[in-house]
């Protein structure tokens, strides 16, 4: 077999591989709507620029100490997070949820939630309000770390 035919075969194989992996009609990802009528910016602008707003807000907050809420990640999560049938929050970076569905589709890594919370902080508030534990959630967390009990017990 000549080199030319070998290359042609290779091209055909790659083409076949790519087309075999393409679904017949892939639509844009479907994800749950937010709570309000309208986002803090027009939808089309958010689709393109949400990461810029978040980074800008972070710089304003961390470097300048200007703490506004318009573009805060916490508010994004509060509005877009969903609850499961048991009434518990589903992490917003879980498959099919608001953030993850498009990030998965476009293969863009979500690194916000390596530090930030993926759901509203009601759980933490509960953790801090356990009677007899006046300090904060931190003490509870420490106690549980030493007691080796499952973490979820603290919230109940």
């Amino acid at each position: 077999m000549s080199a030319g035919r070998l290359i042609l075969l290779g091209v055909c194989m790659v083409t076949a591989l790519v087309s075999a992996n393409t679904p017949a009609a892939a639509d844009a990802p479907v994800f749950p709507r937010g709570k309000g009528e309208q986002c803090v910016e027009p939808t089309q602008i958010m689709r393109k620029n949400h990461m810029e707003f978040l980074v800008h807000q972070r710089d304003d907050t961390v470097y300048q100490g200007v703490r506004t809420t318009k573009h805060s990640l916490k508010n994004c999560v509060d509005c877009h997070v969903q609850k499961n049938s048991a009434g518990q929050f589903i992490p917003i970076d879980a498959p099919g949820q608001f953030c993850q569905s498009c990030h998965e589709f476009a293969s863009v890594k979500l690194d916000c939630f390596e530090c930030h919370a993926t759901m509203p902080d009601e759980g933490h508030a509960k953790l801090g309000n356990i009677p007899g534990n006046m300090e904060s959630g931190a003490a509870t967390l420490t106690a549980h770390a030493f007691s080796k009990k499952p973490f979820n017990d603290a919230a109940q």
């Binding site: 009609a25 639509d27 990802p29 589709f105 476009a106």
Partner: peptide
């Protein structure tokens, strides 16, 4: 100048299955 990559990908996948979707006109 970002574009809507999700809409772009939908357009490209559409082309590959002979369907013409909306291209983000940035």
């Amino acid at each position: 100048w970002h574009t809507d990559v999700v809409a772009l990908k939908t357009y490209m996948l559409g082309l590959m299955s002979l369907q013409i979707k909306q291209l983000p006109a940035d």
